[in-house]
Computed example of a mutant assay.
Amino acid sequence: MRYQQSDPDVRLMMRVKEDDAAAFETLVRRYQTRLVRMMQHMGPKGMAEDLAQETFLRVYRARHRYQPGAKFATWLYTIAGNVARNANRSAGRRQEVSEIDAPLPDQPDQPATLLAGTAADASGLMPARMVEKGERAEIVRAAIESLGERQRMALMLSRFENLSYAEIAEAMGMSAKAVKSLLSRARVNLKELLQPYIDAGVLPQEPK
């Protein structure tokens, strides 16, 4: 009852529980962009929109079992985290198979420093400010993806969704104290990953 009174999204989900399609559409509109952004960091590359859709599908399938024991966002991101983890495991298995079957490359992969040259070449085709902004966004994305899964999840929920330690703890099945420690380590690691770019323009390496 407490969450129904304080969280308008919980009230919407209670209507979804009674098969109110309009209420579900409202929740999708409110959270779709945020879920896609989260999945860009949490799931396999190129699957963010599909994973967001899978999350909403699970929400809808679970509607009749829904009980408002937390904020709606906390419940939603718990489901989203499970979806992302399952997708990462599946992608990892597919990667293992493809590595076994793949032929040996004729040439070694290009070093990360060549990516900087590619960005510099592109600067002649678009305003420098746009290139710089796009490069920064890509650098931050790569750095976040280099974090461990739990650090990434906690950081996304804290920084982009503004959830409290207690709410993140509920979504991740941890104590609030553990979340605080996890976020502290994530911020330190993120700073270390970004420092070479800040100091010398060196691109962080993509996660393996």
Rank of each mutant, 00 (worst) to 15 (best):
D109V: 12
L12G: 02
M130C: 01
E167P: 04
L182N: 05
R85S: 13
L27N: 08
V131A: 09
A142C: 14
F24H: 09
M38E: 00
P108Q: 07
M153H: 04
D9P: 08
A142T: 15
I144T: 04
S184L: 12
R150V: 12
V131S: 04
I168F: 06
K133H: 10
P68D: 08
P196R: 07
Q95W: 07
R185K: 13
Q205K: 13
A142H: 05
E138T: 10
E135W: 11
G43W: 03
K180A: 15
E54K: 10
A128W: 03
A169H: 07
E99G: 05
R159I: 03
D50F: 05
V131E: 01
D7Q: 04
D101K: 14
I139F: 01
L182T: 15
P108C: 09
P68R: 11
G81K: 01
R159P: 00
Q110A: 14
A186L: 06
S164K: 07
M130R: 13
G81E: 01
V59T: 09
V140A: 09
A70C: 09
L203K: 12
L190F: 03
Y197Q: 03
D101T: 12
H64R: 15
A178W: 02
L51E: 05
Y165E: 09
M153C: 01
A87D: 11
R129K: 11
P207K: 14
R61Q: 15
M1D: 08
R159G: 03
A154P: 02
D7E: 07
M1I: 01
A116N: 13
G134K: 01
P207C: 00
K17I: 03
I139Q: 09
N189M: 02
K177S: 15
G148Y: 04
A128K: 12
E132R: 14
L147D: 02
G124D: 12
K17Q: 15
I198H: 10
Q195E: 15
Q110R: 14
S181I: 13
Q5A: 15
M42T: 04
A70V: 01
E18F: 00
Q4C: 04
A52N: 07
I79N: 03
F160G: 06
T113Y: 11
R15I: 00
I79Q: 03
K177Y: 00
T55Q: 03
R29D: 14
A119S: 11
R129I: 10
I144R: 10
S175H: 06
P196D: 06
V36F: 04
V179H: 02
R136H: 12
T55G: 10
L76V: 05
